[in-house]
């Protein structure tokens, strides 16, 4: 199996090719630094993305709060997370860095406030 992808780890955006050699071993080409290899293997085995979102609030004059994941999240976990976030109606003050959802689906990743809320 050979796959082409674009490294998103830095603005250069190298075009990578990855193919599986032996079990658990990968051949990566096109990367201009070691992070590209790491990214390609991650993308082939367990693709992840940082998630940022605006969560609705139930407060006059403050329509929403901005949040993010503490690290890149498995892509498959994102749709349900977004649904959960959009159904919320926040009304309790929070500080930047406070946890909104802890350990989402046992991923070890939290959703935190990226700005003070209220």
């Amino acid at each position: 199996m050979k796959k082409s992808l674009i490294c998103i780890s830095c603005p250069r955006g190298c075009h990578l090719e990855i193919s599986s050699a032996a079990a658990g071993e990968w051949l990566v080409s096109g990367n201009q630094c070691p992070r590209g290899k790491q990214y390609a293997i991650q993308e082939a085995t367990d693709p992840r993305r940082m998630l940022t979102a605006a969560v609705p609030a139930k407060v006059d004059g403050v329509p929403c709060a901005s949040v993010r994941s503490t690290s890149p999240l498995p892509v498959a976990l994102i749709p349900e997370l977004l649904n959960t976030l959009y159904k919320m109606r926040l009304d309790t003050p929070a500080k930047r860095g406070d946890v909104l959802l802890a350990n989402w689906k046992d991923s070890g990743i939290d959703i935190i406030f990226s700005a003070d809320f209220l």
Binding site: I6, C7, I8, R12, G13, R49
Partner: peptide
């Protein structure tokens, strides 16, 4: 940037 084509469009 191509990385934005990848992560925002693709």
């Amino acid at each position: 940037l191509v990385r934005n084509i990848a992560q925002c469009l693709d």
